[in-house]
């Protein structure tokens, strides 16, 4: 460890020690929250939401109307899902999500964001030149496809409902969930046929 007092690890340790001594926080609460976000929440939650929407038209309708209530039906709730808007891809329409100011992201369904989502380059460029950025990320969309960029904020977080891939017609919901990737739910990837 560094001996520089501006070292972030030292500052973290110092802050936690001071707040613990002052009775403001307790280490087990911190441990629990870290473990929860490292182990219990992640894109598998969103994958279940997507698979349910693909399998159950009534659920899909509820999801598109009130994302927060629909994900709560599956037990997913918490910070950054209070106003969850689900945007649906369709032939000719592709949705992609960003947070231009910081890192807003629907934690309960996707976990914590990947580093590229927080990166200044993605945050500025996806708004200015979405087609080029998506192509660089491996998603080539033809000129006829409309790209809708959704900027997350304190008020609204977004989740992309990807198109169900061809060839997945016979699959049960669990198997469908296994096809759904994090990147597809942010809108920077498509889901390939199984």
């Amino acid at each position: 460890m560094s001996h520089d007092p501006s070292d972030p690890a030292l500052r973290t340790e110092a802050l936690e020690a001071l707040l613990t001594e002052r009775g403001v926080v307790e280490a087990p609460a911190i441990d629990r929250l870290i473990a929860y976000y490292e182990e219990q929440v992640g894109p598998m939650n969103g994958a279940r939401v997507v698979a349910r929407a693909w399998s159950d038209p009534a659920y899909r309708a509820r999801l598109l109307t009130d994302g927060r209530s629909a994900i709560a039906e599956l037990g997913f709730e918490g910070p950054q899902s209070e106003h969850l808007v689900v945007v649906e891809n369709a032939p000719g329409v592709h949705n992609v999500v960003v947070c231009t100011l910081c890192s807003c992201y629907p934690w309960p369904v996707l976990g914590l964001p990947p580093s590229w989502y927080k990166d200044p380059a993605y945050r500025s460029r996806i708004v200015r030149e979405p087609r080029a950025v998506l192509a660089e990320m491996g998603l080539a969309l033809d000129e006829a496809t409309e790209i809708r960029v959704w900027d997350s904020s304190a008020e609204v977080r977004y989740l992309v409902l990807p198109e169900r891939p061809a060839g997945s017609e016979g699959l049960a919901e669990d198997a469908l969930a296994g096809l759904v990737s994090r990147d597809a739910m942010i809108g920077v990837a498509r889901i390939p046929p199984p």
Binding site: A9, L15, L19, V25, D31, Y37, G111, L112
Partner: peptide, 25 residues
């Protein structure tokens, strides 16, 4: 199911500590 898609959530222990501390507060 695949969860983190191969990416670590935190790059260093202090990052997770700072995150957890913020949420706990």
């Amino acid at each position: 199911p695949p969860r983190a898609n191969g990416e670590l959530v935190f790059a260093a222990p202090w990052e997770s500590r700072t995150f957890g501390l913020t949420l706990a507060l």
